[in-house]
Design a protein around this nucleic acid. Structure first.
Lengths: 165, 165
DNA sequence: GGCTTGATGCAACAGAGTTGCATCAAGATG
DNA sequence: CATCTTGATGCAACTCTGTTGCATCAAGCC
């Protein structure tokens, strides 16, 4: 999907395709991982200055409009990835307890019988969150080679003012 | 399960059965819901004064020892319920987006094919988190009767010092 | 020009959970 | 008994993620 498609996609979702929003969309579309706001912020800032509040507002907007989906992990930060409007179907995630990376899995439907759930619960089901917790291959290898820290490599805290945003 | 059983259970798990820990266990065993630390704190304090740090430490300990399990929800607070050591099997949860209540469901095994997951992912699977998000029956009824707030009734912020803890 | 509207920035705040250090009680040891 | 250690708890201050309120700024409209 190129930039033009993305802009069209945003407009179709009723979202004005500003520069920052397009940059966020690019970051989200970049990998098959769900990213925490901090990572997204850092990546967008490689392109342009952005304020963290702006990012949070964009992410909220995207989630509301179905452009992104928000997922909880074992730690305290939500992860965001492209939502139903792009990916077509809801999907689960694999969360690595060591490095915190969260990979997107095939559609949830393969894992959970949502229809049966809706029937069995006295509840209006809006969504299903499926997360596999464990240790990813990279972290397992790192641990076997004697390291103790897992395969983390990102780091750096999400704070304000990377210059003047 | 009475108090004596609980004390024995804690000791068996290698946890000294202090008064506070027993109180926490009672609260967790009380319903078939997963509770946020704030609710647990409030309930324990109906019995005895406790500091929130103590509670968090007890919850961490319980999770490490398999006495409790920790689950993420749509909001930012983790929920805790009795863990594998008590309930025997991992289970999913139904989370109400309006009132924030999180009901425990039957065992996860009924919903997700964990074995297949372990095979298909290049990952050491430690656990599976399944959460159904939606609107519970109580909140649906409350909304139909014209209310807008859902069926919340708890409230009050989790802060320190309810007197001298 | 003057007005509104939506996107963004900035500062200050809020909630959940953590860390470091003090304290206190129960045993173990001399 | 005096002392020492150990584990559980309390308190204050902190971290991190995310929010809120208000200012600003550009684009479009009258």
């Amino acid at each position: 999907m190129d930039g033009k498609d993305m802009a069209a996609m945003l407009e179709e979702a009723g979202v004005e395709p500003t520069a920052v929003r397009l940059a966020v969309t690019h970051v989200l579309a970049d990998g098959e991982r769900a990213l925490p706001a901090g990572d997204i912020l850092r990546k967008v800032r490689e392109t342009m200055p952005v304020n963290k509040v702006t990012l949070y507002r964009i992410l909220d907007l995207f989630v509301r409009q179905g452009l992104a989906s928000r997922h909880s992990s074992g730690d305290r930060a939500f992860r965001y990835c492209l939502g139903p409007r792009f990916s077509g179907r809801a999907h689960g995630h694999a969360y690595c307890l060591r490095c915190g990376r969260m990979a997107c899995l095939p559609a949830t439907r393969d894992l959970v019988d949502v229809a049966a759930l809706g029937r069995s619960l006295d509840m209006d089901v809006v969504g299903v969150e499926v997360r596999i917790d464990g240790v990813c291959a990279a972290c397992r290898l790192a641990a076997e080679k004697g390291g103790t820290g897992g395969a983390v490599e990102d780091g750096a805290v999400v704070d304000d003012a990377p210059g003047k945003n």
